[in-house]
């Protein structure tokens, strides 16, 4: 099963290679990985999406936690959470398809961020499933290039408070 794991870590030199080395050394897979600073100076948040049965995911979270520079590990798959990914797509847009591309992008609440005579570059944000959907729909029109950020995620605030 797919799991999204959120990791708070000290932003020390080499910390990213400790994380990726752990995944490769122990044969865990990485579907995507995102990392950037948090509000707290010196602390970064890393979101990694991996696949595995419960025992593997349990090992991944424990092994991550064992890294000296890791402060906190949360497997957010088991929790209420929001996840987002951004994709940039350069899609063919010739006279007969320009309007259709715009319509599709509009449905997905995307934005056109670069225009040329024969293509649009568009930006779409959403959960991984939505990103996949927009890619699937644009593919027949002709996708020339695609760049994805990988997933970031955040637990939902508790509703009772």
């Amino acid at each position: 099963m797919k799991h999204t794991i959120s990791v708070l870590l000290q932003n020390k030199p080499g910390v990213l290679s400790r994380v990726t080395g752990l995944f490769s050394g122990r044969g865990f897979n990485i579907e995507s990985l995102c990392v950037a600073e948090t509000l707290e100076p010196g602390v970064s948040c890393l979101t990694v999406v991996s696949r595995g049965d419960d025992a593997i995911i349990e090992q991944i979270t424990k092994q991550l936690h064992k890294l000296i520079d890791v402060i906190k590990v949360t497997d957010i798959a088991g929790k209420e959470y929001v996840e987002r990914e951004m994709v940039l797509i350069r899609v063919k847009a010739e006279s007969h398809t320009r309007a259709e591309v715009l319509r599709i992008i509009d449905i997905f609440r995307g934005k056109v961020i670069d225009v040329s005579a024969r293509s649009y570059a568009v930006e779409v944000t959403g959960p991984a499933s939505k990103i996949q959907a927009v890619i699937d729909i644009l593919r027949p029109i002709g996708i020339k290039e695609i760049v994805r950020t990988g997933t970031i995620a955040m637990a939902r605030a508790s509703k009772t408070k």
Partner: peptide
């Protein structure tokens, strides 16, 4: 050596 020894140390440092 920090890179080489990463998977076989509990932790390691390059002092900067």
């Amino acid at each position: 050596i920090v890179g080489i020894s990463r998977p076989c140390t509990k932790h390691n440092y390059l002092v900067n």
